[in-house]
Structure formats: C-alpha cells, structure tokens
Design a protein around this nucleic acid. Structure first.
Lengths: 329, 329
DNA sequence: CTGAAAGCGCTTACAG
DNA sequence: CTGAAAGCGCTTACAG
C-alpha cells in the first residue's frame, strides 16, 4: 500500500504538474476538466497536503493558541470554540499548553512566532515585561484573552459589572450581613475588578461593611474562608468570587447544619455545569467562554485580513438564578 | 527590530554555515568554541528553529494526538499528561480535536499522517472499519487510548473488572432491585465491557435481572433514563456508567423527593472532582487518566525507537467510597 | 570538526 | 489555463 503520497505524485497521476495541484488547493485557476482529474486522484489516495510544508506561502493558515492549562473547564470551552471557528474557515489551530509556567509560556509564544503562524491567541495568567518585549518585536497579530492589555488587542470578561450585578442582587433581596470570599489581587480581573463591582453593588443598597476574605482558587480555600467568616460574624449571605469557592462554602455550611438559603444565602461566579447539580442549585453568574473563544478567533482573522477591529471587546455574562439565595425583604 | 530570524541568518552572525547550526540543534559534532558562538547569537535573537520546516529530517519530533472533545475532564487529564511527557523529551505535541464527529476524526488522522508526524495517539469513542483501513495503510506508529484494539497497540482502562468491582459492591451491600444506566454499544469499552462487568458482579450476588437502560453521555440522558427506570420499577440502587449520568440521576431523585441513599443508592464511574461536592458524596470509581496519558506517550516513543512494548496495557482504577450507597444487609 | 550541495513538500511569480 | 524554475527553512550524506 502507498505509505504516503506527495503533491508531486498526485500531479503525476493526474497528468499535470504540482503547480497545478497546488493551485487546485489554493483556489487558483484550474480548468474544470483538470480539476476533476485531480480530484479523482486525491480521493482515491486520500491525499491531504502537508500544511506545514507551505514554507514559501505568505499565509500559513495556522493560528497558535497559548493556554495556561488544559485542565480547566473555562479553558476547554474557550479552546473548543476557537478550534471550531477556525476549522470552519480552513485554518489549523495549534494549541500550546504552558502548564502554569510563565517561562514555558514565553517559550511557547516564541516558538509560535518562529513557526510563522498567521496569528496568536494568548490566554495568560499575567502579562509581564517579557510579554511586552516579545509583542513589540513581532509583526504577527496577537490577541490577549481574559486579561486587560492596554498596549494591544484584548477580549475580556466584564468583571466589574458582573460583580456589581451580584452585589446589587444580594442587596435587593434584603441581606444585611454579608461575607465575601475573594481571590488575591495579583489577578487583576477577579481579585480587583470583580471584587470592586461586588462592593459597589452592595454599597448601593446600604451595605458598607461586608467581611472580606481572600483565598486561592481552591475548594479547600473556600472551606477555610467560610469557617473564618462564621467565626467572626453571623452572615445572612456569603458571596464567593468563583463557583469553586462556593462549593467550599456549601461543604462547610452543610457540615455545620446551616441551611442554604434559609439560614445563609450563597452565590458564586462561573456557571460551571456542576453548579446546577448542587442542592440547592447555586445561584451564579456565567461568563460566556464560548463567546470569548469565538470573538478571539474572529478578531485574529480580521487582524490578518487587516479589517477594522476593536481594541477591547467585553464579553457577555449571564445571571443564573438558582435556589441558593433567599429573598429576605 | 528583526521580525524573524532564520537558521541561515543565525549561521552568518555566528560565522558558520547553517549546516553547523543545524548540527548544533540536532546533537551533531560541534566544537565547543563554535557551539558557544552559536549559542550567543541564539540567545541574543531569541532564535528557535521552525519545527515544521524539518521536511527532510527522518524524525519530525512531532507526535499527533487525536481527541473526541476538548471539553471533558478525562480528556483534559489525558492530554495534559501526554503533553508533559513529550515536552520533557523534546517532542512537540500536536492536538487535533474531532468534536465528536467521526468523519472529522478520520480526517484528523489522515492529516497527521500527511504531516509526517513520528507517531499518533488516538483517543477514540469508536474504532470503525475506516480506522482499520487507515491504520493498515500507514507505517506510522499508532497507539489507541481507552479502546481495546485487537489489531494494534492499545492502552485501556480495566473496564470489565472495574464494572465487576462496582457490581459486586452493590450486591454485597444487600441491594436487590437494580437499575443500570449505560451507554450505547458502539463504545466497546464502556457500552459493552464495563456493563458486562457490572452485570457479572451483580450476578455473583444473585442479582440476575437488573433493568438496563442506554443513554448518550449527557446529564440530560442520565435524567431521562432515571425517570424511565422509576416508571418501570422500584429500584433500591441505580448504577450509572459515568459520573455525569449519575449527576442526572441525582437531579431526578432529588426532584422526586427520593432520598439518596436511604431510598435509592446511586453509584457512578469517573471520579470527577465534582463528585465529592454532591450531597451525599457520590460513590464512584476513578480511572487513572494521568497514567493513561503517560503510558500512551511512553509507548509511542518506545515504538518510534523500536523498543519492545506490550500490545495491551491496562491502567489502574481506584474505588472511591462516598455516601451514596447504603448498606442494606 | 565544518562546509557545499542536494533535497524535503510545497508555493509563487513568470512565461507561454 | 498550465508548466518550468526558483525558493521557503531546514537536514543530511559526503568531502575535506
């Protein structure tokens, strides 16, 4: 059996030159009769051109995607969405995982640049000086996902307004004594902007003194902070910066025999699938990760075609009303 | 700023030929003094060779990975593990997502073959005739993950024994009337072997007539099947072929006011992180996805180096006792 | 230990 | 509408 066929072989079998076969694949002029001959050979031999041998092409039709982990629901959604968008438009998606290692992330970006990809999408945990340097040295279009990047193009979640939405909701439903479990400020988006939104939302309903805790992103962190809150106050609501933290709150409250939402309301951010599995269903706010991937892919292709784009795009969020917040008015 | 540097340019700046620079990267003979000159230029310009321009190399150092979805916890774990293993050994991982589309999966495999990758890891939901045809036509080493493939190399979960373990557990804890929510038989591993294990395990405790349902892999499917089971019988236990299906069962049972495990025990397969968040915690069985990725990557590299390998490797599982099964003895 | 030359599988002006 | 030729960024025998 033919182990692997090249364009030259296909050309020969079809009785043309590889120039013509190349044109066949790249939308150049090929007479209908010729086209059909080529097509027949391609089908018979299951030929597909080597995307990466297009060394001389101006466009590689490859888009690189750099992600901090492969092991997150949000990242999975974003990549799936990017991949679908690009695949439908005849682009190859090249995924590079940085495994939460900032040096590896930089290296991945470098490699993609040297690979001559047409564009790079970066979902980063933090933008450093080194990132800046690299971005300045390259002409390749780059889009930053989920982090606000003032010196370039970015797609971000609307953390402030999402926070405000939740803060107002808790205020409007008549809560008075609120605990907040947030994350550290190194995460600009969640640690700073989302928290500020929540605080402003609460304040607009006269709640000026929520008890604020900070945690990492873990289930255990949520548990620990919930215990601390319960020791220091008697809250009627706990707002958690992520659903995972809220899972921790559930665990502790249920262990202590406190009822959700009768005794204490709980709310999160994330809209993870599993949030609706909890009892009671978690009230949460879902960011549109599929939308972020879609917009990111769309934007990078627009940049490549030199079409006009926005510097910053803000992705929708959706409030998901579960059964974990009681109306106390 | 230099937009992009090639090996020829690096060579010139270092005062050598690209032959030498190539050797520098591929471990050929380079005098120490020369090596240092090259290294200096590389660092200064942040040069990295274009992995995909190695058209003439016998080895591409690229391994392709085909997955049915990017959007699953299990897949995420497997890819993360593969990627780490290969990265550490100087291989590039090329991930192709088939998005649950069997034609796309076949196309992805074809493309990887034409890309001249050194090996392909395939995590498939089903091995078809077309797969066979492709595998036979290529010399490229291929490892099948999670499906038993008699005509080639595979790494599989121990679905039969895992199923048996759960079936016996349900029998041993004194259950009598069991519902089983499985998946379709096109998925050999889960749809056939896992189910058979469960049935045999149950049978060894005298339970010969469980009510068997089939579903896709979805949360909704789990709900639908649970409703059907409840209409047709009054079970004291429901065994679900995946945790996600078990989540669906939880949902329906809780809606109907049936208590887990007092009224009905529930058990799943998967060991998803979120299973421990449920109330009560789900009793489940966890397969070693990281181990599967590791072994898959290790095996494909061994095949490339023509070292001896096993035809079939079976990955560990771990029984995780939650609180969703009642001892009725 | 290093260079000159041919070639990998493809694309692209340029003729015709 | 198609072919001949040069070239993309790299690797690899083969000399020296």
């Amino acid at each position: 059996m033919p182990k692997k066929i090249t364009m030259a072989v296909v050309a020969e079998m079809a009785g043309v030159t590889k120039s013509t076969v190349s044109r066949y694949f790249n939308g150049g002029y090929v007479k209908k009769a010729t086209r059909e001959k080529i097509q027949k050979v391609i089908e018979e031999y299951n030929y597909a051109p080597n995307t990466f041998a297009r060394l001389k092409a101006k466009e590689s039709n490859v888009i690189g995607v750099v992600v901090p982990t492969l092991n997150s629901k949000v990242t999975s959604r974003v990549i799936t969405s990017i991949d679908r968008y690009l695949r439908d438009r005849n682009y190859t998606t090249l995924i590079k995982n940085s495994d939460h290692d900032i040096d590896l992330e930089l290296l991945n970006i470098q490699k993609l640049i040297h690979l001559n990809v047409d564009g790079i999408l970066i979902s980063s945990i933090a933008i450093t000086e080194d990132h800046h340097d690299i971005f300045e040295q390259t002409q390749i279009p780059i889009v930053i996902l989920a982090q606000d990047y003032e010196d370039g193009i970015s797609i971000i979640d609307d953390d402030y307004n999402a926070g405000k939405c939740v803060g107002e909701y808790i205020g409007r439903t008549g809560h008075k004594k609120v605990g907040y479990i947030g994350v550290y400020e190194t995460d600009e988006a969640v640690g700073v902007r989302r928290r500020q939104g929540v605080l402003d939302g609460l304040a607009s309903f006269g709640i000026y003194d929520p008890l604020i805790k900070k945690s990492d992103y873990s289930f255990l962190g949520g548990q620990k902070n919930t215990r601390e809150i319960l020791e220091e106050m008697k809250p009627d609501a706990i707002v958690c910066a992520t659903d995972r933290l809220a899972f921790g709150a559930y665990k502790v409250l249920q262990e202590k025999g406190l009822r959700i939402p009768e005794d204490i309301s709980v709310v999160g951010f994330g809209g993870y699938d599993e949030s609706s599995l909890l009892t009671p269903e978690l009230t949460t706010l879902k960011f549109d990760s599929y939308g972020m991937g879609y917009l990111g892919a769309e934007t990078i292709l627009k940049m490549i075609k030199e079409e006009p784009i926005s510097k910053k795009q803000i992705v929708e969020y959706e409030f998901i009303e579960g059964k974990s917040v009681k109306n106390r008015t």
